[in-house]
Structures are given as C-alpha cells and as structure tokens.
C-alpha cells in the first residue's frame, strides 16, 4: 500500500533519483505535495491527489477554442496557461483561402498534441500528429488532471474497460478534460463510472469494481 505524505514530510534519507513532487534538502529527500508516496529501490516520487495542469511537451490534451485570430486559434486547455493552435498546424493545408473561424468556430473542441512549451509558458499545439483530431458530437467533462493516470490505468486497462463496457467513444486529455460520445444512457453510465474513479482514485482494486459496476448497470438499461 502506498503511504500518504504531506508537504514537507521526510521521504527518504538515501540518495535516490527523484521524480515529481519531491526535493532534496540537506541530503534528505522531502515531499513537496500532498500525495501518495511511490518509492522504489533507486527512485522516489510523490503522486499528487489534486492540483492544476502544467503543460508538458509530450502530452495530448483536449482544448476548446476560446478565440479565433486571422492566423491562429486560442485554446482553453483547463490550465493557468492559454494555448495556441496556429493555422499552419491544422491537419490539412489551408493555403490562406479559408477563414479560420469557418473551420473551427469558438466553442469547437479539439484533441491536440502539445508541440512546444516556451520558457515563458507559451503553449503551442498541433493537429498534425497521429491521433490528433477535431471532436464532433458528444460532450466534455472535467476531472482533476492528477487523476488522469488512474483513469487510464496500467497499459490502458481502466480506460479499455470503460470504453468496452459503456459502449461509448472516450478520449482523455492529460489536462483532465474528457470527451465522451455515444447513446445518451451509455454516456450517463460512463460519466457515473468516471466520477466514481475520481472520488476513489487513492483506493486499490478499482478496475474490477468499476467493471462489475458497469456490467450490473448495463443490464438495467
């Protein structure tokens, strides 16, 4: 069982490699956040239980167009930082003939890859990447970004169950925004399961519980 640590708590006296949420202080490693301690033989980190989204260059996120300029879209990615999707990063060549606001008007949702995060936290995204897409239909819900790894599970175990047992298309952005598309009753089911995972993410044996829950509830549909 992973131990819960609070900010400032002594995590390890040995010299180990450090992941997120820890810092070295006078040769000892201390926690920087409220979270679960993940300690291995030569590695230590704290998995946060809450907190905002800090954009990283490898992440896929779901963004909503909040403003359209002549040459780029501004995306709201549920983070303190606004991100930019340049017109040239749309997956097909626009050749300057079409207006951006006719292609993706304000309110459109996109599943994009973060291409670059500058030192001053300018976030540049792209649609020219395998998997990146414009989202049509369905709707969006938000969870805490720190709970996304739990929602996806080891080797996608949790999200695969959610997809197959609820019968919905589901896309999860690393920023905690989730897109769900499918029949209304199934979407309700998926949302209920996601909310349950969010509330109980620090517990063990969640995958099996969610699977049984979804199978039970689907019988009643």
């Amino acid at each position: 069982m992973r131990r819960l640590v609070i900010p400032g708590e002594l995590v390890s006296k040995e010299n180990k490699k450090m992941g997120t949420g820890v810092a070295r202080k006078d040769g000892e490693i201390h926690s920087n956040q409220l979270g679960l301690l993940d300690e291995k033989e030569n590695f230590v980190r704290v998995i946060p239980l809450s907190g905002g989204y800090n954009p990283k260059e490898i992440d896929f996120v779901i963004g909503v167009v909040s403003y359209v300029h002549n040459t780029f879209w501004k995306l709201d990615i549920a983070s303190p930082y606004k991100s930019i999707l340049p017109g040239g990063e749309f997956f097909r060549d626009l050749r300057g003939k079409e207006r951006l606001r006719d292609i993706l008007p304000i309110g459109s949702a996109v599943y994009v890859k973060i291409k670059e995060v500058t030192k001053s936290k300018g976030v540049f995204t792209t649609l020219k990447w395998r998997g990146a897409t414009v989202l049509k239909g369905g709707f969006l819900i938000e969870i805490s970004p720190s709970k996304v790894p739990r929602l996806i599970g080891k080797k996608d175990s949790m999200i695969d169950i959610l997809r197959s047992e609820s019968g919905c298309e589901i896309l999860v952005g690393q920023n905690g925004v989730i897109w769900i598309n499918g029949p209304v009753e199934n979407m309700d089911l998926a949302i209920e399961a996601i909310r349950y995972i969010e509330a109980n993410s620090h517990k063990r044996g969640l995958t099996d519980y969610v699977k049984n829950m979804l199978i039970e509830k689907r019988k009643n549909l």
Binding site: I6, P7, G8, G21, A23, K25, H30, N32, Q33, L34, G35, P48, L49, S50, G51, G52, S144, S146
Partner: peptide, 11 residues
Amino acid sequence: MADAGIPMRDL
C-alpha cells in the same frame, strides 16, 4: 493550500 495540491516546501 495543501488540499489544493499547491507545491509547498512545508506546512
């Protein structure tokens, strides 16, 4: 602040 997940050196 700790509950909000703000990175802090200590309480």
